[in-house]
Design a binder for these strands. Structure first.
Lengths: 227, 227
DNA sequence: TCAAAAGTGTTTGTACTACACCCATGC
DNA sequence: GCATGGGTGTAGTACAAACACTTTTGA
């Protein structure tokens, strides 16, 4: 059995679209580049794949070493192959998107205090490389995914109120959803279960708390919305 | 601006899941390998990405040179990164799936007569590499895609009858769909348009012919089926 | 005139939409 | 007791499912 030649392969980068959610707004995590190309521009975090790494390992390495994050929702998005997407040469980018609860992973101040920042997804600056296209594709994916798969919980606290879940959906989809119909739809599925406790210390009525139903096998949930 | 090192990148292969449809059956195109590894096994057609090629170019090259096909529906499926998926070394595989009408591209007899063959998707032999997983993922994608996007037309003739379209859907989804409800649903969307002609020369009533509505912009078609 | 497949319509149930009132809490 | 947000129910509508008869054709 011959082994093939391993020269002349394009470089392989992994780029990450990291979504966070806080206070009714969806955020995107961006890095300010300190090197050419696109020095000074905001870009998606990423790294080149090491020979002994799986894609997912690279994602975790990026998130951990650069951002101090770990253990979050990761899903492969798409692979980008445009010839001129990196001015340094041919680079294929395999992209993933991640969902995190920013509360759990405060971006630590330090040498990179100004290098890493959350941006509201409605107000993204010009991005380096082809990262704007990647971000848009990720947002689109998130929107369609959330319609039929319980993906939003990664963005919330372990326990959450119906209103929080509702606002999350409205924020991601960018549309208004009737509060009462949303509640019924979610509860009719076996999507979430009540914890039996209520959120305390609010100025008004204390709302019920829920958590994600991890036992969920066959999930019949489906929001019927045209994007 | 530094240029990065281009050594030590994994090899990058493009593998193709080619679907064909004929006579109420969905088929998969497979290649019989004449070299190690997996000599004698059936595998998905594929090739290594050339430095000056886009993914899509590689797909077309494979389909054209090996199979004499061109101009078909192509969509990126997923990128596979398992460490041991190729015994020769680290190979990343970016996969695409294709839909073709086998009538238009008869696999030509010749030196590769026994090397290229259509298999019913219900009776796939053991495949080399991790190609069984790739095929399964492609089939899953096709099933969910066909529910909301007019993807099936690539598999049929330019003009087709309602029954043919109906049987195609049943065959891909693997379930029974009520003939009359299917017809109504399809016609209520602006999915297809009648050509005004009928299929002639049949033993029984001559069915109306339709074609895909290429003007279709906002497509509200959606089959509400849990897979 | 018969067999085989194609065309058509109605009824029934279910699911989504829209909408308004009462309840619990802290100030 | 009042302002604020949370919890609940219902009537109307639209869509999906189930289902049967008539029509066209070649043999």
């Amino acid at each position: 059995m011959k082994t093939f030649n391993q020269y002349q392969n394009p470089a392989l980068a992994i780029d990450l679209v990291v979504f966070g959610y806080h206070d009714t707004d969806l955020f995107l995590l961006l890095l300010n580049r300190k090197e050419e190309p696109f020095k000074g521009s905001w870009t998606l975090p990423g790294a080149f794949l090491q020979m002994d790494e799986l894609f997912r390992d690279t994602c975790i390495r990026v998130l951990k070493t650069k951002l101090g994050m770990a253990n979050l929702y990761l899903e492969q998005l798409y692979s980008f192959d445009e010839m001129k997407r990196d001015p340094r040469g041919r680079v294929i980018s395999v992209t993933y998107y991640a969902l995190i609860n920013p509360k759990k992973f405060e971006v630590v101040a330090g040498k990179m205090a100004n290098d890493v920042k959350w941006f509201k997804t409605g107000k993204i600056p010009n991005l380096g490389f082809d990262h704007e296209g990647i971000f848009k594709k990720a947002l689109q994916r998130l929107k369609s995914k959330i319609l039929y798969y319980p993906v939003g919980f990664e963005l919330l606290d372990e326990e959450f109120t119906m209103t929080e879940l509702h606002e999350l959906y409205e924020s991601i989809l960018g549309i208004h959803l009737d509060r009462r119909n949303f509640r019924r739809k979610i509860l009719d599925s076996v999507y979430i279960v009540p914890t039996g406790t209520k959120r305390e210390g609010l100025q008004n009525r204390h709302p019920d708390l829920y958590k994600f139903n991890k036992q969920l096998q066959a999930n019949k949930f489906h929001l019927n919305i045209d994007l």
